[in-house]
Simulated assay, not measured.
Amino acid sequence: MTMLSRRASLLLPFGLAALSACATDVSPMPPADPTGRADPEMRGLLEAFASLNPKPIETLTPAEARRQPSMADAVKARQRMLGLPTAPRAIPQVRDITIPGSAGPLQARIYVPQAAPARGEPLPRLPMIVYFHGGGFVIADLDVYDSSPRALAADTGAIVISVHYRQGPEHRFPAAHDDAYAAYIWALQNAAQLGGDLSRVAVVGESAGGNLAINVAMMAREARAPLPVAMGLIYPVAGTDMTTPSYRANAMAKPLNAAMMKWFFDNYGTGAPSEKTDPRLNVVGNAELRGLPKAIIVTAEIDPLNSEGKALGEKLRANGVQVVERDYMGVTHEFFGADPKVLSKAGDAQRFVAAELQAAFAAPAPAVVAPRRNARRPRA
């Protein structure tokens, strides 16, 4: 049933002509705030986020946006409200390093879930995860996304290499994609000296990082480089269609909304019309997905990216890729890295991804399968 403005309803007794005359005064109802569907723990975390007075990202410059409170800050605020410790999850070895990227050095952070061996003892051969953080290819860094790689290292027993990459608008598409692949190749080449097992390397990413993770696998397949044994795709950016059901339902969601996604694309993209169909960004629509390794997909109910994450799982499965996925109800984008004592579903998602990664590490390494000759290929 169409809702009428108050002025239009008052004119109804005067007939349709009067109503037609004031039609320009009838504006569409703005989409409702969907965070009312959040479960109690998620609602508490969102309230903690609101208490930090974040400004709408889409109204800021990239430099201003990078200084805004993040959901990581909100988790700490919520921990303080609940009387919980705010120290990060303890990992035996954490160190910052610099690695070569596609166009210069990149910051990276290594998490090793075992104590350093005594002098003279051989390094262990642990599985490895190359992890890419979120932030729409524009904001965030290794510190904002510190909790997720800690959880992955602790729950999988794998070495995690968290990689920062060039961001827009200073470095536009495909700079982040090129850096992500360069970081993956560096991890393969340096696995032995890191204590890692070259045959057991996975890629994991959140949001924009999820897009980078699947692109790394596609680029490795194209180059006939060793494939990752699995892809952890946590609410990934997988398409450029902003009219999906979840974009419409969650246009006003927090901490990610539709206006922010447009802002991210505008600041990372070059503005070329072809980018909307480029398979590296529009993975669901145009990427060749045959021959990719196991995909572990996590989606959140209150998230503009929910529909494309589910569509990605369907398309991967249709192309013969093993897919395991879990959709978490009552939570929003960015829930994955929260302290499980603050948000229990974060702990469940972390354990789900870790268990599936461990299963992939125990399975035979995936073979490289070349895409069909007439398929559209992601450009390197």
Results as ranks from 00 to 15, higher is better:
residue 285 G to V: 00
residue 166 R to V: 03
residue 299 T to F: 09
residue 338 A to T: 10
residue 310 K to F: 09
residue 248 R to T: 07
residue 42 M to C: 14
residue 45 L to M: 11
residue 294 K to R: 13
residue 97 I to N: 06
residue 102 S to F: 08
residue 199 S to R: 12
residue 27 S to R: 12
residue 62 P to Y: 00
residue 253 A to H: 01
residue 299 T to C: 10
residue 54 P to W: 02
residue 256 L to T: 06
residue 374 N to S: 15
residue 88 P to I: 02
residue 38 A to P: 00
residue 246 S to G: 02
residue 364 P to I: 12
residue 61 T to G: 04
residue 319 N to T: 02
residue 131 Y to M: 11
residue 215 N to S: 13
residue 18 A to F: 14
residue 19 L to S: 06
residue 67 R to P: 06
residue 358 Q to C: 14
residue 140 A to H: 15
residue 188 L to H: 15
residue 234 I to C: 09
residue 347 G to L: 03
residue 71 M to D: 04
residue 119 R to M: 12
residue 207 S to F: 03
residue 134 G to F: 03
residue 211 N to G: 15
residue 342 V to A: 06
residue 6 R to Q: 14
residue 69 P to T: 04
residue 45 L to R: 04
residue 49 F to H: 14
residue 11 L to A: 13
residue 19 L to P: 03
residue 132 F to I: 03
residue 94 V to E: 11
residue 366 P to F: 05
residue 8 A to D: 13
residue 108 A to C: 08
residue 148 S to K: 08
residue 149 P to H: 01
residue 30 P to V: 03
residue 350 Q to A: 10
residue 135 G to Y: 04
residue 263 W to K: 02
residue 78 R to W: 06
residue 16 L to I: 12
residue 128 M to A: 15
residue 102 S to D: 15
residue 33 D to S: 08
residue 33 D to P: 04
residue 293 P to N: 10
residue 48 A to F: 04
residue 310 K to Y: 10
residue 335 F to A: 03
residue 235 Y to L: 05
residue 281 L to D: 05
residue 136 G to Q: 02
residue 205 G to W: 00
residue 35 T to S: 11
residue 352 F to W: 12
residue 123 L to T: 09
residue 19 L to F: 06
residue 190 N to W: 06
residue 29 M to W: 05
residue 19 L to A: 13
residue 357 L to H: 05
residue 117 P to M: 05
residue 254 K to H: 11
residue 117 P to F: 08
residue 21 A to V: 00
residue 152 L to K: 08
residue 265 F to C: 03
residue 231 M to H: 08
residue 36 G to W: 09
residue 303 D to R: 01
residue 317 R to G: 09
residue 117 P to H: 04
residue 147 S to V: 07
residue 311 A to G: 01
residue 342 V to S: 06
residue 23 A to C: 05
residue 141 D to Y: 00
residue 259 A to Y: 00
residue 22 C to V: 15
residue 327 D to Y: 03
residue 266 D to W: 00
residue 351 R to F: 10
residue 91 I to E: 14
residue 24 T to F: 15
residue 251 A to W: 02
residue 153 A to D: 12
residue 32 A to S: 13
residue 293 P to T: 05
residue 57 I to Y: 06
residue 363 A to R: 08
residue 265 F to V: 07
residue 355 A to K: 11
residue 290 R to P: 10
residue 242 M to T: 15
residue 181 Y to R: 02
residue 133 H to R: 08
residue 116 A to N: 05
residue 39 D to A: 13
residue 14 F to A: 13
residue 30 P to R: 02
residue 201 V to W: 11
residue 25 D to A: 13
residue 327 D to I: 00
residue 90 A to E: 15
residue 182 A to V: 04
residue 266 D to I: 01
residue 113 P to K: 05
residue 302 I to S: 11
residue 110 I to V: 15
residue 330 G to F: 01
residue 256 L to I: 06
residue 259 A to R: 00
residue 347 G to I: 05
residue 355 A to L: 13
residue 188 L to Q: 15
residue 360 A to E: 09
residue 111 Y to T: 06
residue 361 F to K: 00
residue 64 E to P: 01
residue 315 K to S: 07
residue 305 L to T: 01
residue 233 L to M: 09
residue 109 R to I: 10
residue 269 G to C: 01
residue 375 A to Y: 07
residue 134 G to V: 03
residue 179 D to E: 00
residue 109 R to E: 09
residue 325 E to I: 02
residue 367 A to S: 14
